[in-house]
Design a protein around this nucleic acid. Structure first.
Length: 501
RNA sequence: GCCCCCAUCGUCUAGAGGCCUAGGAUAUCGCCCUUUCAAGGCGGCGACACGGGUUCGAAUCCCGUUGGGGGCACCA
């Protein structure tokens, strides 16, 4: 928490914040974190959350991605008060629908001499840039079109040569007031005259963002560190437009395990990937919040409402955040543990469906819940319930090789299994308590013979399930019932005899 | 290359000049529990990047170095 200690989120009075993704891909984990920070600030201080789609890049934007972004946000529990789907007083909320507005402001800047037309083509620019770099000079736009002779300008205009509009960066020092990093000062000479209107007449990113933030009355711009230098341009634009500059907070970027910006080569990076993998939305949101934010004490498990209550900008760190898959897994476990058997089962069912586990799905609901419950502490993600619950739909008497070998090794197998049959015969009921009593009785029985408990319990597992690994014995007893278990043991014996033991 | 940001265990972090022999979590290792796999309990390993200041005293403040990251598009 080096960067700065500003007022807690709830001390900000009615902020208007926005999350402004561009629909050029599925919602990235890093963007989700940005959205979460914005949302926490809004919800923690009676503010307004705005969702704005920055879809000015027609080539790369798609409705499919837009759908994924809204869906992923909703899944995480993030909502908004104004946005493309819910409307609001400052709409429209898609930049593609705001183009007319940008044109007006661009004309205003042009009229005031704060911007100028540039007739340089991309090719010319490219060539001059290459030349500059070859000469070892830093390349910045050379202002050729700002200094165009009048007659030349007139000729180009009358010929209708396409042009871009560039912002005329004034000399001086620009200060970005960042809530996390303090004042960031940059000399304007570092910034070249950037393009605010493209040659096709559409607004560029910087113009669109600033006009939107201005007209949407955004008070706090919370976004990634990668925009810190852009903020310099934005401050310049706000000033040129005579608008109040919002407060900024540039949080650190999400990195992969190797320390570079989290990207596909580190594995899955979209929220929907994690949803599909079987992570709980509570766990993902919790984890994302914990990257760069800390409550200041040892607590780590938070539900969204608790996060809203606890989150404060003062607890946000300015340093890098590496995405740690292990810790996410741990948090997912923690959050799964809070779920009831019924809730967990609801979440597991789609995974059983996806894997075509018809047999499990055909189970009566309470049996399925029991099966899921019995394997829950082995689960890291929801999909982990699929394979381990197979044990409950195995045919009786079917042995895998390891189980068969273990059974053969057992010296007093017949005695042990006879004891199992006896104990199982003692009770028809199949609740947790009586199942525990039966296991206890098996232990007692073993003790009575001077054996360790394993001598009886191990063959019990092997004979009932035909496998060497599986859920706790009490679950087996409840699932099949004492009589069912006894039958399965008999079936295993028959198998053993048939194979000549 | 230029500009900007960042710097505590492998990772996420606590730390607001003396509460620091630097705390927690995760990962890892070991032990315990134990019918299997886990889970759980207990314990171990493990960090203030470096160098200068300021100060009675620095992980904390300042400067420099190094390292990492970001930006320098008619992408956002």
């Amino acid at each position: 928490m080096r960067g700065g200690r500003m007022s807690p989120a709830r001390e900000i009075s009615k902020p208007r914040v926005r999350f402004a993704p561009s629909p050029t891909g599925r919602l990235h984990l890093g963007s989700a974190r940005t959205a979460l920070f914005n949302w926490l600030v809004a919800r923690g201080s009676d503010g307004t959350m705005i969702l704005r789609l920055e879809d000015t890049d027609k080539e790369r934007s798609s409705p499919e991605f837009e759908h994924d972004i809204l869906g992923s946000l909703h899944w995480m529990g993030i909502d908004w008060d104004e946005g493309p789907d819910v409307g609001g007083d400052h709409g429209p909320y898609r930049q593609s629908e705001r183009m007319g507005m940008y044109g007006e402001y661009a004309r205003q800047l042009l009229g005031q001499g704060k911007a100028y037309r540039c007739y340089c083509t991309s090719e010319e620019l490219d060539a001059r840039k290459k030349a500059a770099i070859a000469d070892g000079r830093a390349w910045r736009y050379d202002r050729r079109c700002l200094e165009l002779p009048e007659n030349e300008r007139g000729r180009l205009e009358s010929e209708g040569v396409p042009y871009t509009v560039r912002f005329k960066v004034p000399a001086g020092t620009v200060t970005v007031e960042d809530m996390l990093r303090g004042d960031v000062n940059v000399d304007a000479s570092e910034i070249d005259d950037f393009i605010i209107v493209r040659s096709d007449g559409s607004a560029g990113f910087h113009l669109a963002v600033v006009i939107d933030d201005m007209t949407m009355e955004v008070t706090h711009v919370i976004r990634g560190d990668d925009h810190l230098t852009n903020a310099v341009r934005h401050v310049l634009l706000f000033e040129a437009l005579g608008a109040r500059t919002p407060k900024f907070l540039h949080h650190s970027l999400l990195m992969g395990p190797d320390g570079s910006k989290l990207s596909k080569r580190h594995g899955s990076t979209s929220v929907s990937d994690y949803r599909e993998k079987g992570y709980l939305h509570e766990a993902l949101a919790n984890y994302l919040a914990l990257l760069s934010w800390s409550p200041g004490d040892d607590r780590e498990i938070f539900l969204l409402p608790e996060l809203v209550k606890e989150f404060s900008i003062a607890g946000v760190s300015a340093s890098k955040a590496i995405f740690d898959f292990d810790k996410l897994n741990w948090l997912n476990r923690k959050h799964m543990r809070r779920l009831s058997a019924s809730e967990l089962t609801d979440l597991v069912v789609p995974f059983l469906e996806r894997e075509g586990r018809d047999a499990q799905l055909a189970l009566p609901r309470e049996k399925l819940e029991l099966a899921v419950e019995s394997v829950r502490n082995g689960m890291e993600v929801l999909g982990d319930a699929v394979e381990p619950t197979d044990v409950f739909v195995r045919p009786a008497g079917e042995l895998d090789d390891k189980a068969r070998a273990e059974l053969r090794k057992s010296a007093e197998l017949d005695d042990a299994l006879a004891m199992c049959a006896e104990v199982l015969g003692a009770g028809p009921s199949a609740d947790m308590e009586s199942a525990e009593r039966m296991v206890a009785a098996l232990r007692e029985g073993a003790k009575g013979k001077g054996w360790g408990a394993k001598k009886v319990l191990w063959p019990f597992r092997l004979a009932v399930t035909g496998l060497t690994v599986g859920p706790d014995l009490v679950y087996l007893i409840i699932f099949w019932g004492p009589a069912g278990c006894a039958e399965r043991i008999d079936a295993t014996r028959a198998t053993m005899e048939a194979s000549g033991v």
